[in-house]
């Protein structure tokens, strides 16, 4: 069974969005990258604006989350998705510019699976993106999502 693996990229900076997608794509690891540009959009996408919209969007295999976001910041987003039953198991990799200790601690505290700083050197950035893709999309095993469970039913 071929599974469509999607990444939800939550990134407000268009440069970073472009560079991240470029780095991920360089490794040919990603089938589908859904980009949302702030925390509110991310939550809308994942949780829906109301309960009815809940399951409109397919859930991503991996969420790459920036912390510094307009409207609702990354940590709040992380907290909310970890509180929702159907999103709490989705791996979240925090990819951000800073490596301030307070951010690192808070991210893990709210249930982030990884914390990675974006290197300035683009070559290194590509290496990082490649590593994330290899690790989370190719090597890591996920619990089977609800849809699949439903299908089998």
């Amino acid at each position: 069974m071929t599974m469509k693996k999607t990444i939800l990229l939550v990134e407000d900076n268009s440069d970073d969005e472009l560079l991240t997608i470029r780095a991920l794509k360089k490794n040919h690891l990603v089938n589908d990258i859904i980009v949302v540009r702030d925390g509110a959009e991310a939550l809308d996408y994942l949780l829906g604006k109301n309960t009815d919209d809940k399951l409109k969007n397919p859930l991503p295999t991996l969420i790459i989350l920036d912390l510094k976001l307009p409207k609702i910041d990354g940590l709040e987003v992380l907290k909310r998705i970890r509180n929702e039953e159907h999103t709490k198991l989705i791996p979240v990799v925090v990819l951000t510019s800073s490596k301030e200790q307070q951010d690192v601690i808070a991210s893990y505290g709210f249930g982030a699976n990884s914390f990675i700083r974006k290197p300035v050197d683009f070559n290194k950035f590509v290496e990082v993106a490649s590593s994330i893709g290899v690790y989370w999309l190719a090597m890591n095993e996920f619990p089977k999502n609800n849809e699949e469970n439903n299908e089998f039913k």
Binding site: N13, D15, D16, L19, R22, L67, K68, T96, S97, S98, K99, E100, K118, P119, V120, D121, F122, N123, F125
Partner: peptide, 21 residues
């Protein structure tokens, strides 16, 4: 300093990244 660590680095990444691009 929080801002610096986030916001000053982002443009540098863009400069470096797009130069590389």
């Amino acid at each position: 300093s929080y801002s610096i660590s986030h916001d000053l680095r982002a443009p540098l990444r863009s400069i470096d990244g797009f130069s590389q691009a």
